[in-house]
Design a protein around this nucleic acid. Structure first.
Lengths: 133, 133
DNA sequence: ACCGTAATATTACGCCTGTAGTTTATTGCC
DNA sequence: GGCAATAAACTACAGGCGTAATATTACGGT
């Protein structure tokens, strides 16, 4: 298992199905993605076996069919990809990344409060205040 | 010119030299990157011509040599790449991305204050924070 | 024991990236 | 004016991705 998971758009779409359902067969994933993308079933199968080779998913055979499940959590992938991008763009400086996000976009007042709340929560951090959250 | 610029690590390294200097010859870029990566000069040249084909950089010939310059700003690339990742990971929800960043990492008290200040500034509709770096 | 069907495995191909060797063109110098 | 140096152009190749057609295999039924 590599410790960094860079997934492409299509790979993410497949993983999302797996995360949502816990596990799924090739046919189920194909079905789930049919709406947004008109991909052949074999395409999905190819992608899955490649992901398996990379150690991102695994399968078990259940009556003739492969049942895939993810070996990594969505949080791990997010972490990994954000980390990677922060490295690329800001030399690993998370706060620089944050500043960029904040200064670049409109943040609604509600979101703003939510973010400040998160910050405060983070500040208290260690000692779980009973009011927190 | 595409309106989305996804650059890889090496491409970023090259662009960074261009952004830092305004412009540079192949040899200069090669020299600048020699320390961190032992790449052949022709490798740099190949990358640059591919970037040019994509409309990311341009060159002018000055006494026998190509002088390259970037056609996009670092801010544009950051914007583009962050946008893309936010799309992939959070379906475009910037605030979700922010939350993730906040909840995932240690933020020093100083940074925390800095971020809150940014938020307040944003709240007042004050334009253009002095965005360092 | 066959055969059709369903599921996986194999093969293929174009495009992009990193990587760089080889070839060609130009130019300054003797 | 020819030649060495230099810079760019061309060619190459492996590996990953998206995409999928074709081949193989294993059941389940009659």
């Amino acid at each position: 298992m590599p410790d960094t998971y860079q997934l492409t758009e299509l790979q993410m779409a497949i993983m999302r199905v797996l995360w949502d359902r816990g596990q799924a067969t090739v046919a189920e994933i194909h079905e789930a993605l049919k709406a947004e993308r008109g991909l052949a079933l074999t395409t999905i199968a190819t992608l899955l076996s490649r992901l398996e080779k990379r150690g991102v998913v695994a399968h078990e055979t259940r009556q003739r069919q492969f049942v895939y499940r993810s070996l990594v959590t969505e949080a791990e992938v997010r972490h990994s990809m954000i980390h990677e991008l922060t490295e690329r763009l800001f030399d690993g400086d998370l706060t620089a990344m944050l500043s960029h996000l904040l200064s670049e976009r409109e943040i609604s007042p509600g979101d703003r409060e939510r973010i400040k709340a998160l910050l405060d929560e983070k500040a208290l951090g260690k000692e779980k205040s009973p009011h927190a959250r």
